[in-house]
């Protein structure tokens, strides 16, 4: 009995101590209180959404002196968590997929502009790329457009319904404009992960694949005799964005080389003299009913963080381009961007 009383005391005090360890939510004086959870639209903790979110959330949590945590729950669960919590304890970070998924009509994607409040943008991943085998007959995107116009079938490996497809759609649209009727020669090979896309290229089941600078740069440095060797043919990012990348670029491909594969060197027409480009931007999404004071608080805090300049170094180290726009600017910018892509997607589906 003696021992059990002793343990009882021990347990009791341990328990109290553990409660005392819990942060007191009232310590923060802004409208954002308590523990904050930032859900992201991806389920991967190794991917770019998670990385960008954790860089920004780390900085925010230090600045606001709040417990903040990034959880990779995936878009469907993330939206559900966000829907249920108008208090501001749940925030979301996602990228252009949120509206592209909706524009492509993918099940489960709601229009983010009407169902949620779009928050500030935080960064761009400039790495979205298209690659061909190193021994491919196509030297440039122009070659591909021309070949499709001449009736050759070109198979493009993409993951359907979003960021990976938008470049393909734009290319198809460009072929439609330059060689009306020939756009059907560009066919999508729908697939999933980067490894599946690479595999299709190795197996000669695709002529062109979607990939990224980060994941595929080393493949572009393999000798041509290697079955795995690839060549960049198109980076969808704007040259304006790429200009801000570190001068050394990534791996052993420097910025100048990367710029050769982006507009205006590569032309994918959107009609008239407009050229297609796509920057994959990461931004916050909030519950529609969330207190506007929190929106302002996050905007202001991010403003401060970006003004200090330390976060940019961290982002650039991982080959992300810092891109802070406060909520109101981000909303109009992203809406305008979404409208632009909507016209391309619609013109293809006609």
């Amino acid at each position: 009995m003696k021992t059990s009383r002793l343990t009882f005391g021990l347990v009791g005090s341990a328990f109290m101590a553990s409660l005392a360890l819990a942060p007191i939510a009232a310590a923060a004086d802004g409208p954002l209180r308590g523990n904050v959870r930032v859900v992201i639209g991806s389920t991967s903790t190794g991917g770019d959404t998670y990385q960008n979110a954790s860089i920004v959330v780390d900085a925010l949590s230090k600045k606001l002196d709040l417990n903040m945590k990034v959880d990779a729950v995936g878009f469907s669960s993330a939206y559900r968590a966000l829907d249920r919590d108008p208090r501001g304890n749940t925030l979301m970070i996602f990228h252009d997929q949120s509206y592209l998924g909706h524009l492509y009509g993918v099940e489960g994607y709601k229009d983010p502009f009407t169902n949620y409040t779009v928050g500030p943008t935080i960064a761009i991943n400039p790495g979205n790329a298209y690659l061909v085998p190193k021994d491919s007959p196509y030297q440039s995107l122009d070659d591909i457009i021309k070949a499709a116009g001449e009736g050759k079938t070109i198979r493009v490996a993409i993951q359907p319904g979003g960021v990976s497809e938008i470049g393909y759609t734009a290319l198809k649209n460009a072929i439609r404009i330059e060689h009306p009727g020939a756009e059907d020669n560009l066919v999508a090979v729908n697939t999933g992960s980067q490894s599946d896309k690479n595999q299709l290229l190795f197996d000669d089941q695709a002529d062109l694949i979607n990939g990224s600078v980060q994941a595929n740069e080393q493949y572009t440095r393999l000798p041509e005799s290697d079955q795995k060797a690839m060549r960049f043919i198109w980076l969808t990012a704007t040259s304006e964005t790429l200009q801000q990348a570190p001068e050394n670029g990534l791996g052993q491909t420097d910025r100048a080389t990367l710029l050769e594969y982006a507009e205006p060197n590569v032309k994918v027409t959107m009609g008239g003299d407009k050229n297609f480009a796509f920057d994959k931007e990461f931004f916050f999404l909030y519950n529609k009913k969330m207190n506007p004071a929190i929106i302002k608080q996050i905007d202001d805090t991010l403003e401060e963080i970006y003004a200090e300049g330390a976060i940019q170094k961290v982002q650039k180290k991982s080959f992300f381009i810092p891109d802070f726009k406060p909520s109101s600017k981000a909303q109009s910018h992203l809406k305008e961007k979404a409208d632009r892509y909507e016209t391309i997607i619609e013109s293809i589906n006609k």
Partner: peptide
């Protein structure tokens, strides 16, 4: 190992055929 990739990218190290 999919999570492990994060450890490399956090440090700015690429993994690929030349790693």
């Amino acid at each position: 190992t999919a999570v492990l990739i994060g450890a490399f990218t956090l440090q700015g190290i690429q993994v690929g055929p030349l790693f």
